[in-house]
């Protein structure tokens, strides 16, 4: 006496299909839901704004840390000979140098 598992699976699923789940609703359930809705505190826009800021703080901190690590690293801003500040310095001093030479 062996059972064919595929056949067993089909028989069980068809048994489950035959009887739809009960749609019975407990007495005055809608009033319970409405009571829960009414007892909820009114939406506080300041609290929502503060919560949104707190949620945004973590990703912002992550981005700041990532940028910091990148800037301090070898491929970052430090030690870069073509950095904007050195370019600006060269441009400014070149004017002074040219003026000195003309005197």
């Amino acid at each position: 006496m062996r059972i064919n598992l595929s056949q067993l699976e089909r028989a069980l699923l068809s048994a489950a299909k035959r009887v739809p789940p009960d749609e019975r609703v407990p007495y005055a359930f809608e009033q319970r839901v409405m009571a829960r809705l009414r007892e909820r505190p009114a939406a506080d826009s300041w609290a929502e704004w503060a919560a949104a800021l707190w949620r945004a703080a973590v990703p912002c901190l992550g981005v700041a840390v990532a940028l910091g690590v990148w800037a301090m690293g070898p491929g970052g801003l430090r030690g870069n000979e073509f950095s904007p500040d050195s370019d600006l310095e060269t441009a400014l001093y070149s004017v002074v140098d040219t003026t000195t030479e003309s005197w």
Binding site: P20, P21, D22, E23, R24, V25, F29, E30, Q31, V33, M34, L37, R38
Partner: peptide, 19 residues
């Protein structure tokens, strides 16, 4: 009008209970 939600609950609760 929060009370307008009650007929919605009453109408759909049997289906949601079944699910």
């Amino acid at each position: 009008d929060t009370s307008a939600f009650e007929p919605i609950v009453r109408k759909y609760q049997p289906r949601i209970f079944a699910t």
